[in-house]
Design a protein around this nucleic acid. Structure first.
Lengths: 205, 205
DNA sequence: CCCTTAAGTAGCCAGTGTCAACAATGTATT
DNA sequence: AATACATTGTTGACACTGGCTACTTAAGGG
C-alpha cells in the first residue's frame, strides 16, 4: 500500500477515494474507531485534504451511510431474483442476504443505524433507505396475494421480519451467537421460526 | 442536585454512588457519551476520585454491565410470574418486559452488548448473563413439555426469540419503529408473529 | 500520635476536528 | 504564449476532550 513516490500533487479523484477508503475501514470494524485523520492517512493524503470535498466529518458519514443503503438494497434484490421456488420461501434467502451484508460490513451497518442524536430516523425515512424496506414489503405483498403468507397487515409482518433480521445481524456482528447459547445453526432456526410465523398454516411448508 | 456546601471530605460510600450515578447516566442516553469525568462531576466529586475505587474506566463499565444483566433478569422474572394463562402466551409478556427494559435503559442496554473488541462475548458467557437466557429457555422447555410449543431444538427457538426481541429493542432505542415503516403497533405484530412461529399449530392460539 | 485510606488539585499526554495560510497544478482569458 | 484565477493539495497550529498519574491534604482508627 505504499504510495508511488512520485504521486502527483493532485490526487485526481480524491472524493471518491476518500469514500472508498472509508468504506474499507468500516468493513474492518476494529473497534468502531472512525476518524477523519485515519481516513486521510489511509488514502495517502494529508489530514486536511478531505475538507476540500466534505464540509465536515458528519457529512462524509452521512453520505457513506446512504451508499450503505444502496448496497444493501442491491444485495437484497440480487438474493430475491434467485431461488424462485415458493414465494413464501423467498423470505429465507432475502433474510440471509441481509444478515450477510451486516456481518460483512459490520461498522457500516452500525453506522446506518447509528442512533447518534436520533439522527438515524432521518436517514431511514430517506427514499434510498425506504427502497430497502420496499424489497421486503413487496415480497410480503405478493406472498399474501398468492395465499402463501397469512393475511395480516403487512407493516406488522414487516416489523417482525425486520426486527428478527436486525437482531440476528447485530448479535452476529457482536459475536454473540455462540453455540453455548443458541446452538450450532441459530440463523437457520430463527428463520424457519419466522417463516412459520409469517406463513399461511393452510399451506404446506 | 446541588451538593450540600459542607459535604464531608470523605464521601463515605463513593463506590456505590459512582455506580448509581453511572446507571443514571446510562438511562438518559444522550448520545452515548460516557466519560469518567462526567460521572465524577455528577457524583459531586473530583475527576480523579473514582480511581480510588476502580482501576480504570473499563472496570467500572464491566461492573455496571453485569448489574444490567441482573436487573434484566429481575424484570423478566417479574414479568414471568404474572399472566399465568397459557404457557405459550407467557412468551409475550416476557418479550414485552425485555423490550421495555431496553427502551428504559437505552445506553445501559447498549453497553451490555457493547461489542468493544469482542468483549461482549465474555460478558454474555458469564453466569449472570446466562441466567437471563435461562429464563427464556425455561419457558420454552415447559411449553414444549406441555405441548403448547412446537417440538424443536430449544436453542434454535431461543435464537429466534432472542433475535427478535433484541432487534425490536434496538430499533425502538434508535427510534426507528416509525409508523411510516412498521405501522402503529409494531411490537404487538412482531410478537404475535413470533408466537405463531413458536407455537404448536395443533393448539388453538 | 502516627499511618492508612480516601479525597482534592494539578497536570501530562495523546488524539481529533477544524481552520488558516501557503503551494502546486490546471484552466481560462487576454 | 503569458498571465490571472480557481482548485485542490500540504503544513502547521489551536482548542478541546478525556484517560490517567503524581503529589498533596483531610479524616479516622489503632
Amino acid at each position: 500500500m505504499q504510495d508511488a513516490p512520485n504521486r502527483p500533487y493532485h490526487h485526481g479523484d480524491l472524493r471518491r477515494a476518500v469514500i472508498e477508503t472509508a468504506l474499507d475501514m468500516l468493513r474492518e470494524e476494529k473497534g468502531w474507531q472512525f476518524t477523519l485523520r485515519e481516513v486521510a492517512r489511509r488514502a495517502g493524503v494529508s489530514h486536511a485534504a478531505p475538507y476540500k470535498h466534505f464540509p465536515d466529518k458528519a457529512a462524509l458519514l452521512a453520505e457513506i451511510a446512504m451508499i450503505g443503503f444502496d448496497r444493501l438494497r442491491e444485495s437484497l434484490s440480487a438474493a430475491k431474483s434467485e431461488a424462485p421456488k415458493t414465494l413464501r420461501n423467498e423470505i429465507t434467502p432475502l433474510a440471509r442476504a441481509y444478515v450477510a451484508f451486516g456481518t460483512n460490513n459490520p461498522a457500516l451497518y452500525r453506522l446506518m443505524f447509528s442512533a447518534e442524536e436520533g439522527k438515524a430516523v432521518g436517514m431511514h425515512l430517506n427514499e434510498r433507505a425506504l427502497a430497502v424496506f420496499d424489497v421486503l414489503l413487496e415480497i410480503l405483498r405478493r406472498g399474501q396475494a398468492a395465499g402463501s403468507i397469512r393475511k395480516r397487515p403487512i407493516e406488522g409482518q414487516a416489523a417482525a421480519a425486520w426486527g428478527l433480521v436486525h437482531g440476528m445481524t447485530m448479535l452476529a456482528i457482536d459475536g454473540l451467537l455462540v453455540p453455548e447459547k443458541v446452538g450450532s445453526a441459530p440463523l437457520d432456526a430463527a428463520l424457519s421460526t419466522l417463516v412459520e410465523g409469517l406463513g399461511n398454516p393452510a399451506t404446506q411448508h
